[in-house]
Design a protein around this nucleic acid. Structure first.
Lengths: 160, 160
DNA sequence: TTCATTGCAAACACTTTGCAGCAGA
DNA sequence: TCTGCTGCAAAGTGTTTGCAATGAA
């Protein structure tokens, strides 16, 4: 491809931005607490719940309050910079919005594996369409138990 | 098929049982409150949350307490006679366990449509397997907006 | 300078639990 | 009879909110 679209360029720039920069870019007023939160979210390699996020923030600034965490998470979510996850334990978990993916949870260890499947996405869209709907979103959680056979990782994109 | 397996016979008998009978069959001590709850669950054509279930029970016996509702729902769930649903509003909803199915929610009206897709089930099993897991369960919620075209109802099994 | 954001604590919403009395098998 | 169930009220848990002080733009 010789020409690059404006959208493509922006996307590339956006891809290089830090999470805090993305927030600023989105027009969110960045306080020191929100910078902290941004860093914690960015450094997270798991899917922390609010309590965990709060504790990680506290390590860096013990004066931060959980109310601010809740409020800022809610704002980041409104701007679609992060996504809320529901693993069924009644505690909200968060992750920075990346490519759309689904989750598989190991029922024995609680480990969450991320994966994506084009085929699955397509099928879900088809189902919605056949039922007379335009897909806006979906949420899929698979629960499973590790089996003996060595895994083929063709779908997997991340494991924690 | 000429011969019927014992399992098949049992299943057929089970299919004819009332929900309360299934509870008894499962070894659950049936009190008057639980009979009431069983009836309410059986009569429900929607996916009521605990509050709604409680109110429906109260209509028939105003002395029933919500604590008993919670406790009995939890027991019914342990015996896999009912299933908890999570539509993302923070309130648990329940439905009597029937054939496995998924849900599509109309984001504009909140209506919940049930559907099942063999193809989807198979794909999810495949994904789990390829990731090294034996599928124990899955939870899929599709969110969508009604589109103009008339729907082909090939997947749909129930609409509320 | 201005107004959104903060920390604190109280309020909230949903759910669970301790206890003494009650009732199903 | 005897254990498990009930209603009640209190406690628990995760989240939200009112308020006065603070701080980013």
């Amino acid at each position: 491809m010789v020409f690059e679209t404006m959208a493509g360029k922006k996307a590339r720039i956006k891809g290089d931005m830090s999470f805090a920069q993305k927030c600023t870019h989105a027009g969110i007023r960045m306080t020191s607490q929100r910078h902290l939160l941004a860093t914690v979210l960015e450094e997270a390699v798991d899917h922390p719940n609010v309590e965990t996020i709060y504790l990680r923030c506290k390590e860096k600034d013990s004066s931060i309050s959980i109310a601010s965490i809740y409020r800022s998470l809610s704002i980041f979510e409104d701007y679609q910079l992060i996504q809320k996850l529901d693993v069924g334990d009644g505690k909200a978990r968060f992750e920075i919005s990346r490519v759309e993916h689904d989750h598989l949870m190991d029922v024995e260890t609680g480990q969450i594996h991320e994966f994506k499947s084009q085929q699955l996405q397509k099928l879900i869209e088809e189902i919605a369409s056949e039922m007379g709907f335009e897909l806006t979103e979906h949420r899929l959680e698979i629960y499973g138990r590790k089996h003996g056979r060595t895994a083929c990782r063709c779908y997997e994109i991340k494991v924690y």
